[in-house]
Nucleic acid binder design. Structure first.
Lengths: 251, 251
DNA sequence: TAAGTTAGTTGCACAGTAGCACTAATCAAA
DNA sequence: TTTGATTAGTGCTACTGTGCAACTAACTTA
């Protein structure tokens, strides 16, 4: 087994052809809405010898397991299910990051996904949940300092989510299968952190044929609301415009 | 050096902690416009022993070099410059793919970027260009069968490009620094493969403050055209809407 | 029965694009 | 010098979808 560089072999795995391989991890940004605010799931880093950033909060994730994971997406799904118990969330890749500096253990890459799940009924019913907690999002990030470059990864995921919510049906995946239009609108408002026009919102939702009415109403101490569900539950719908283009934002 | 699994050690590199690392590559989808059509740069796979897919066409790319590359983006830039000589293209990550099956050499990941470069004056002036060629895009792909899962990667890049062109200033990066509005419009039409309204196009470009006039005109056998350049040459501008939302397309 | 609350509708104003017709400037051919 | 061809650039109307705000509807509670 010929090695390209004796220094590299100390910190990186080297295979038969002499190619030094970076570490490969997957991190998942799991969003949900609690108490009217967007939250992210974080886990605290283990406090064992050799583990970097012990005790710090980090995105749930870890090494790709080449024996267990058929591909990157199943790896992400595995980590999500392990932490939350959720099996079929909305899952989308944000991108990948890799550099020599992001992990003290050496040149490493991470494949970042974000997931949207409905508000959990019991708090954190997944296995191994003692070290996991929901953190409310403020602006781009979270109040605690994160391990590695996870603050940057989280910011990218939040930006992707906010951007996409402007012109897609994504917030529907933050709700259970059946919901009222007001509930859906509230999900948009929570993610975008600004109020939307009720009338324009409804027009847009109906024009896109996003939902169909269920033969139910949601009763409360006021006028009952029609209950809807997604027309095509696993498709994401694109609207022709973003909301309120009035404020021409310089990005 | 303790190994987790003797079988895995045959095909994968194993490091000190017993973690089996997948292969890590970067592939770049390099777009340009030639003869009024969108083209992609492809390279033919080497015909050496041990090399998979010998002789087939593939996206330019290769292994991440942990000693040469500071991060994934510099790796992509290095590969782009090596093939084309271009140093400062528009470069954006499309995403990453990884699975046990995409490369016969074992569990592998690729980080895919796409680049936009102006129509090259000399054809392929980069080093090592004997095995590289421009291929015109038809619909989602290219006429030849591609190595590995590169057809899928290319399709994702094309889709990303077409989507984003609908509401951004991306096609400006397919032109040299100075251009006329008709030339810019033609870039949009080439990528989107449909004609645009001249009047609406100009209104939109000026409203976004995308360009500023240069004190030049482009003369030809007809009325000369005002020459413009980008106002902020390295920023991408977002328009508030997509083009022609009239025809509500079912995606 | 009245007040409070949320659901859902209606109508007008406005912004930005589609569509199309129009004017403007140059060259080349007659 | 005029005419036609060609491309650059402008003006006008219709239409779509949102912003904004007022309105009606249905239910609960006091």
């Amino acid at each position: 087994m010929k090695q390209k560089n004796p220094v590299a072999s100390r910190t990186h795995a080297v295979d038969v052809q002499g190619i030094v391989r970076p570490l490969a991890t997957v991190d998942v940004v799991i969003f949900t809405v609690l108490e009217g605010r967007l939250h992210v799931l974080l886990v605290s880093r283990p406090d064992a010898p050799g583990e970097p950033c012990p005790g710090m909060w980090a995105l749930p994730g870890g090494f790709v397991d080449v024996e267990q994971d058929a591909d990157l997406e199943s790896c992400a799904l595995r980590k999500l299910q392990h932490k939350t118990g959720v099996r079929s969330p909305y899952l989308e890749q944000v991108g990948s990051w890799g550099s020599s500096k992001r992990d003290p253990r050496g040149w490493s890459t991470t494949h970042v996904y974000f997931a949207l799940i409905p508000t959990p009924e019991q708090p954190l019913q997944g296995a191994n949940n003692s070290n996991a907690a929901w953190f409310p999002l403020q602006e781009q990030g979270v109040r605690v300092k994160l391990a590695f470059d996870h603050a940057k990864l989280l910011e990218a995921a939040v930006q992707r989510l906010r951007n996409k919510v402007e012109y897609t049906s994504l917030p529907a995946f933050l709700l259970p299968r059946e919901f009222t239009l007001s509930e859906l609108q509230r999900m948009y408002e929570v993610v975008l952190e600004r109020p939307l026009e009720k009338s324009a919102f409804r027009t847009r939702v109906f024009a896109a044929d996003l939902v169909e009415p269920v033969d139910k109403v949601r009763s409360g101490p006021n006028r009952p609301a029609q209950v809807y569900r997604l027309n095509r539950p696993h498709e994401i719908v694109y609207f022709p415009r973003t909301f309120s283009p009035r404020k021409g934002s310089e990005d």
